[in-house]
Amino acid sequence: MSSKRTIAVTVNGTRYERKDVEVRLTLADFLRHELGLTGTHLGCEHGVCGACTILLDGKSARSCLLLAVQADGHKILTIEGIAPSADKMHPLQEAFRDNHGLQCGFCTPGMLTTLIEFLRDNPDPTEQEVRIAISGNLCRCTGYQGIVAAALDAAKRMRAAP
């Protein structure tokens, strides 16, 4: 049994066929180093900070805790794929900009991917529910206030224009 495998994945709607990966390569490193999608950030690399959160078949997951081989045949959405088009931002991105939901931006990709799933399941959340939803995402800049305000604002925008 070789320590390499050939995988095929769909990332942000683009199909990648026949990618040779070392079996120990994490999905996060695959996205960043093999596909050049460096929007997925790596903070702790042991599943605590949430910065590397991506959506695997529509469900949020920490890409530092997945092997690239495990993504074979699956669909992945990263921060690069959330905007509807090149010149239009996702309502969450707009709300983060307008509510000072980021400063250095390191945690932002994980915050947004986490909140995409959360607002899909819970389009009209309370502030407490938002705080619990992002409890697995560490931010060292904002004190979370702007992020919570942005999430609630984004929920409102998305309800108004679903």
Partner: peptide, 9 residues
């Protein structure tokens, strides 16, 4: 148990 991201896996 953990967070939504960890409960999904």
């Amino acid at each position: 148990v953990g967070h939504r991201q960890t409960r999904n896996r």
